[in-house]
Write a protein that binds this DNA or RNA. Structure first.
Length: 429
RNA sequence: GUGAGCGUGGCCAAGUUUGGUUAAGGCGCCAGGUUGUGGCCCUGGAGAUCGAGGGUUCGAAUCCCUUCGCUCACCCCA
């Protein structure tokens, strides 16, 4: 690879044909899961007004502060490549007056996100997320529904050993009291805070003290007051009902009082799903309730909850757990041809086959039959049609079943009928 | 933003410590193995200025400097 050659930009990558199987597998399972719960698809623009993320996600969050791709366009507008999906969906909800639809509104998306991070295993600058949002319903049953959707998706993909972590961080009514309690706790032990970063957090964002991974902070976190104990009556009722719902659904969860998440818009329920050997890049699906977000970006108070799942991380885990993508089972025909007349014949036959729904590939011209059939194997064709002068003269073509090494002579019409027959078309989609 | 490791044909790589004739090998690709039949096997072929630039030397993939890139970890997050 010479230095002058272009490369995919840092943190991005090409998904080559061989890797498409897993990607399609995940995307398909995701849209099926969404459909099963009645979440309709929405696509929002790749870039948005930069202010949307500052207002929505929070200006002191790392995502907005240092990971966003922000630029001025030629007209002078300040835009950001979308770093996450919730704020754009809420913006769209507002812009299109979706509160005039039957509430709640259920939406899902699957599209690329952009974050200026240093790349690493399971972390890319361009990543694909599958996400769902349900807007307009504050009932805890809806929290449980969203969790069930995500949990079920991973289960249906065949992933095992997943852990659901759950917490409630309260709402504007009770969180300030909790934050105060937390701050009090830490201030009383100020000299025990060895970690510089956490000394800052104490002032700027005390909640984040809780998910510090520093060893010296662990002991402090261990006995820090938990948000659950400080929930107001409403939040507490919400929380208890959510747990009851999850119990009803038999979804196992683990309470984690350190789970606070890095986006400012969360209220009440927050959750994460992590795989067995969860490293630092472990979280593959995470979300929470954001009852204040829509108001924050200019709407009237509207509750919402959702999650986002990292497609690349899911694929990584599929590979780790040795779960193969389902192979596509359909027919694929290679048209081998010998001589200029046969080539023309093959061209038209291919066209006819495709119009009957049979994928057909023209063999590379000018090669021996042997080489053309070798090519058929390497592109994993299931059948080959052999067209030579003999066939054109007699009007009988050779249809070779490559998997079973059998062949038969058929008229052009019978051959097309045979390949286009339903038993040949194993493709579900 | 911080730290560590690594850059040899499309891919995986030996060789780098102990500088020395045409830079191993495997995969893949192309072609042949008789006259129109694949996947296995055999044979042959194409393909690398050893990431880039500079330096040391009679001579460097191998030593020195600079630079770029990649990977992993911290941080953060999906």
């Amino acid at each position: 690879m010479s230095a002058s050659a272009f490369q995919a930009p840092r943190g991005t990558r090409d998904v080559l044909p061989d890797a498409q199987g897993h990607k399609r597998f995940v995307e398909l399972a995701a849209s099926r899961a969404a459909a099963a719960f009645g979440y309709e698809r929405i696509d929002t623009p790749t870039f948005e007004d930069a202010g949307l993320f500052v207002r929505g996600v929070g200006e002191t969050t790392d995502i907005v502060e240092k990971e966003t791709y922000t630029f001025k366009d030629r007209g002078g507008d300040l835009l950001s490549l979308r770093p996450e999906g919730t704020a754009p969906v809420c913006r769209s909800y507002l812009q299109h007056g979706m509160r005039n639809r039957a509430q709640p509104v259920r939406l899902h998306y699957i599209c690329p996100m952009f974050r200026y991070d240093r790349p690493q295993a399971g972390r890319y600058r361009e990543l694909s997320q599958f996400g769902v949002e349900i807007i307009g319903d504050a009932d805890p049953a809806v929290d449980a529904e969203v969790i069930e959707l995500g949990w079920g998706l991973l289960r249906d993909l065949g992933l095992s050993g997943m852990a659901l972590l759950l917490n409630s961080i309260g709402d504007p009514a009770c969180r300030p009291r909790y934050v105060a309690a937390l701050r009090e706790y830490y201030e009383a032990r100020a000299d025990a805070i060895a970690h510089d970063e956490c000394r800052r957090r104490l002032k700027s964002n005390p909640l984040r003290l809780l998910d510090c991974k520093e060893a010296s902070c662990r002991a402090l976190i261990q006995s820090a007051p938990s948000s659950i104990e400080h929930l107001c009556a409403e939040c507490s009722a919400h929380w208890n009902e959510l747990l009851a719902c999850l119990d009803q659904l038999r979804i196992p969860y683990r309470l984690d009082s350190r789970l606070v998440r890095g986006l400012d818009y969360y209220t009440r329920t927050v959750f994460e799903i992590t795989p067995p050997g969860a490293g630092s890049q472990g979280t593959i699906l995470a979300g929470g309730r954001y009852d204040g977000l829509i108001e924050q970006i200019g709407g009237s108070p509207t509750p919402g909850i959702g999650f986002a799942a990292g497609v690349e991380r899911i694929i990584l885990n599929l590979q780790e757990q040795k779960i193969p993508a389902p192979a596509d089972a359909g027919t694929k025909v290679l048209l081998a041809h010998l001589g200029p007349d046969a080539k023309k014949f093959a061209l038209v036959l291919g066209s006819d086959l495709r119009s009957r729904g049979v994928p057909a590939i023209l063999a590379p011209a000018g090669r021996s039959l042997k080489a053309q059939l070798r090519y058929a194997s390497s592109v994993s064709a299931t059948h080959a049609v052999i067209i030579g002068e003999r066939e054109i003269e007699s009007g009988t073509l050779v249809l070779r079943d490559l998997a079973h090494s059998r062949q038969q002579n058929l008229s052009r019409r019978d051959l097309i009928a045979s390949l286009a027959s339903p038993v040949m078309q194993g493709q579900p989609q």
